[in-house]
Computed example of a mutant assay.
Amino acid sequence: MLKSRLITAFILIPLVIAALFWLPPSGFAIATLVVCMLAAWEWGQLAGFTSRLQRIWLAVLCGLLLALMLFTLPPYQHAVQQPQIGASLWAALGWWIAALLLVLFYPASAGFWRGSRALRLVFGVLTIVPFFFGMVALRQYHYELDRFAGAWWLLYVMLLVWGADSGAYMFGRLFGKHKLAPKVSPGKTWEGFFGGLLTSAVIAWLFGLWAPLSVAPGTLLICSLIAALASVLGDLTESMFKREAGIKDSGQLIPGHGGILDRIDSLTAAVPVFACLLLLVFRTL
C-alpha cells in the first residue's frame, strides 16, 4: 500500500504542478471541472445514490452547472469581482463554519441530515462548487500583470495542505496518543494535528522566502493559518460523511490513495477559504 501511494504521488504531483504553470486559465479551469465532475460522481455515494446511472447523471449535471457558470465569466479579469465567484467563496466560508459544528457535535449532528438525500446533495454542492471557483479565482490572480502569479498562489496553498497532511501523518505515527475526533476519524490525533500545523508553518516560511508572493506578512500568516485549519476540517468532514455511508474510501480511481475526494477533501476546504480571505476579506486584488 505504501509503495503504491508513493509511486502514485511521484506521478501525480509533477502533473499537478505542470498543469498549474503550463495550462492557460481556460485550460486549467476545464481540467479542474473534470476533477469536480469525478468528485461529484463519488459524492453520490455519500448522498445515498447507489445506482451507477444516478451518479453518472449527478456528475454530468455538476459539469454542466460549472460550465454554464464558467462561460459567463469574462476572460483574464479579476474573477473574484464576478458575483457568481464572490458568492461561491462567501458561501464556502459559511458552509465550513457549519461543517465545523457538524463535526464537533457528531454523531448527534447527523440526526437532522442523515435521512435527507437532498440535504446531503446541498452539502456536496457547497463543497465542490466553491472549490472549483476558488481554484479559478486564484489561478486568474493578477493574470494580466503576471501570468504565473496565480499559479504560485495555488502551489502555495497546495503545499500548505500537503504539508499539513504529511506532517499530521508522520507526527501522529511517531507521537500520537490523544485522539483528535475519535467519533469521526479514530486514527487522527492531537499530536498529528499540531505536527501538521508545524509542518505547514515551515513550508509557508520557506516558500515565502523564495516565491513571489506580494502580500503583507501578517495577511499571509492569517490566511495560511486558517487555510491549514480548514484543510483538517475538510478531511474530517469527508470522514464523517464516509462513516455515515459505511465506506472506507470515496472511490478507487487513484491507486493506493482511494478516490478523488480522498485526495482533494482537504483542498475543497482550504482553497475556497484561502481565496475568500485573501481576495474578499483582505482585498488583496
Score class of each variant (00 low, 15 high):
A275S: 11
L285I: 02
L102N: 03
L225V: 15
L93E: 09
L61P: 03
G63I: 12
H78W: 02
D249M: 05
L70Y: 15
A99P: 06
W57E: 01
A79S: 07
L53W: 04
A108W: 15
G246V: 07
P74N: 09
P107C: 06
G94E: 15
G27F: 14
L213S: 13
A18Q: 04
A92T: 12
C223Q: 13
L46W: 07
L233C: 03
F132K: 00
L155P: 08
I85N: 08
L236K: 02
I222V: 15
I226D: 12
T8E: 13
S266Q: 07
Q82E: 13
I97V: 15
L66R: 10
L280F: 12
Q82N: 11
L233Q: 06
W205G: 00
A91N: 10
T284P: 00
W153R: 12
G63L: 08
F28L: 04
A39N: 11
L198C: 11
L20P: 01
A67D: 05
Y156P: 01
C62P: 10
H78P: 00
W152Y: 14
R5C: 11
A59K: 09
L93V: 13
L261T: 04
W43P: 01
I247Y: 01
P75F: 12
L229A: 10
L121W: 14
F28W: 11
P14Q: 09
F21N: 00
P182Q: 10
L253D: 01
A87N: 06
L65Q: 12
L221G: 06
L73Q: 06
W57C: 04
W90Q: 05
Y141C: 00
W153E: 10
L73R: 06
G27I: 15
C276L: 14
M158C: 05
R117P: 00
G196E: 13
V103L: 05
A118F: 15
F123W: 09
L279R: 01
L101F: 07
S166T: 15
I247E: 00
Q54K: 14
F28E: 01
V129K: 05
G208V: 04
V125M: 07
M158N: 07
L73E: 04
G150K: 03
C36E: 10
F193R: 09
L278K: 13
L104C: 11
D146A: 04
G176K: 05
G44E: 07
T127L: 05
A211R: 03
F10W: 13
A216V: 11
P130A: 14
A151F: 04
L261V: 04
I30C: 11
I30F: 15
W190A: 08
P74T: 05
T72S: 14
K183V: 11
A47S: 13
F194T: 08
L278P: 05
G234S: 03
T72W: 12
R114V: 07
L206T: 03
S239E: 03
F132Q: 00
L121D: 09
Y106W: 07
G167K: 14
L180V: 13
A47W: 12
A91G: 09
D249Q: 06
F171I: 09
V202E: 01
G251A: 06
Y156C: 02
V122Y: 12
P24Y: 13
V16P: 07
F207S: 06
F282V: 06
L100D: 02
Q77D: 09
F131L: 08
I17H: 12
G124V: 13
A108G: 01
G196R: 14
P75E: 03
S266D: 05
Q252K: 07
G111N: 10
A228C: 14
L46T: 10
F241M: 07
D146C: 01
F193M: 09
M37P: 06
